[in-house]
Design a protein around this nucleic acid. Sequence first.
DNA 1: CTGAAAGCGCTAACAT
DNA 2: ATGTTAGCGCTTTCAG
Lengths: 339, 339
Amino acid sequence: MIPTIKDVARQANVSTATVSLVLQDHRRISHKTKQKVLRVIREMNYRPSKMARGLVMRQTQNIGFILTDNHFLKTEPFYTYIFLGTEFEARGHEYYILLNTIPTVYNDEDCLPRFVKENNVDGIIIAGKVPAEIIACIMPFHIPLVFVDYYPPSGDYFAVLIDNIDGGFKATDHLLSLGHRRIAFIGGDLDHPSIYDRFQGYRNALKKAGIPLDDQIIITSEKATSRESGAHAAKELFCHGKDVTAVFACNDAMAIGAMQYCKFAGILVPQDVSIVGFDDVETDLSEYTPLTTLSVPKIDMGSQATKMMVDILENKIKKPHKVLIPVDLIVRDSTKIRN
Amino acid sequence: MIPTIKDVARQANVSTATVSLVLQDHRRISHKTKQKVLRVIREMNYRPSKMARGLVMRQTQNIGFILTDNHFLKTEPFYTYIFLGTEFEARGHEYYILLNTIPTVYNDEDCLPRFVKENNVDGIIIAGKVPAEIIACIMPFHIPLVFVDYYPPSGDYFAVLIDNIDGGFKATDHLLSLGHRRIAFIGGDLDHPSIYDRFQGYRNALKKAGIPLDDQIIITSEKATSRESGAHAAKELFCHGKDVTAVFACNDAMAIGAMQYCKFAGILVPQDVSIVGFDDVETDLSEYTPLTTLSVPKIDMGSQATKMMVDILENKIKKPHKVLIPVDLIVRDSTKIRN
DNA sequence: CTGAAAGCGCTAACAT
DNA sequence: ATGTTAGCGCTTTCAG
């Protein structure tokens, strides 16, 4: 049988109120009683019931986690890592994470995650891009929100974001430092904020190096950011004989696609061309030259988001703000000094 | 302000007991009052508090989900899908899934998932192989357990398992039906139950076809089930000129490894040799011939596990038993009729 | 510094 | 058929 606060109180010869106060480390408890109670608690292996406490405190100690299903199920476990990060961090703060995937396409039926309907969370972490309707549905409930790896088009929010500008800069700067001057950018739709920012970093780095932008070697006509589109972009680049010695791809998939094309076209990486990716998600690619890329600390992002949420819930912070997570350049074999 | 049962009772001019009974669809409530109460509930948008109900009912309406971290984080989202399946199913039964990853190597510090320490789950689903110590730690708590894709070496448990024997049979039978007679088996450690069972299916199929087993073409000397070991095994097979026209690999990774070796050795798939894998997890392998394999309904497995757990918790089933999930042969391009 | 008691929202005897 | 009431395990005034 699981001991209750009453059992502890009886055993320690104090009232339940005292036990409760000890539990909260209240200062108006004498050191002696505190030690006594603590000992009994340990002996009986007592833990306060979340439900009873939640009932009276009017809080669930749960944090919701919302993600569209395609994000969670894609092959690279990007959001899976973020999710895990939230879980790890939540443990230390006595919170539980409640996952709720939502359909990628908006669907007014089950628009509201059930944990908000049931009032079963104190706050919600939203990971990746979600339909604007979902956010609109949740807002009226006045539940604290933290966004991870996504920032809604308008409004002020708490958010944990990748420092994409810095990443783009680091990638480009790395190539510059290797002596490259003709550095191409290949990316998907610039309307996507992450890609746009990575491109900004690229621009900033070139500007700093005093190299003018050359639209000829900036390929942003692809919509997707897949391997296929990476291969396409590379074809565009090399087929027309534009002289480039290095490529910064906006993500690993496109970088790999570019490498696929190079292999096909007999272009050697990194001898003929250096390539840098972004994300550090494409593993097990024994076919290709190991990719120099920017590594995103995914677990850390989840952890930061939870930390931020806990701070909000404990009223430690009130004003919405963004936290930018720095990325690390991982130098592997796909980049080398310019010939 | 969220309405409570009292608000509903007052508004409907009945007692809270009546509202409670209506909520549980108790028959000793007159149709008329029931309708009246139901209307008020709808009007006020009332939902009973999980915590209050849980407190008195002594149940959390939470189901724990345990997984070692390496399982959750491996590149293929195998267990991620299973986890999602449990979530989907849980929704329909008003349960929440609480994830708790545990270190892969046993670590007596945090051996117990916190949701059991805190008594925050009614039952626990355990996915994939976990250290025996963890199970031993949990047993004393008498929490219902359901295993998914793993069955402990000894004892009687509820479990949802892949029908590996059937899968091995289907794989081999497919090759037989294509006219192959010299069918190799490549697998990792036969001590692993899944691999052993897949091998049994292979044996059964050959036996049924009246083909004697040939130890020469059964490669089980590899410990791992990685691409590398698949390539090794294939080398072993083809290097020594053992005549085989088909290979059943115990999983997709080994099958891909075998294909890597074939490519290297100039052996054509499927022209020279047909290959069948197992799991249907290796995607995005544009380099290789699309693999004929056995597809495991991962989401369905999670869903079945939750269903089983809910049945246990509702006392609908009491005797431990296994549910075998059938697998489907997915014929792609890596197999063809024997020349 | 500690205890008694009320009450969080709900269910389940027991009354009526 | 419905209402009254006593808790479930905990926190929190308010007294002492």
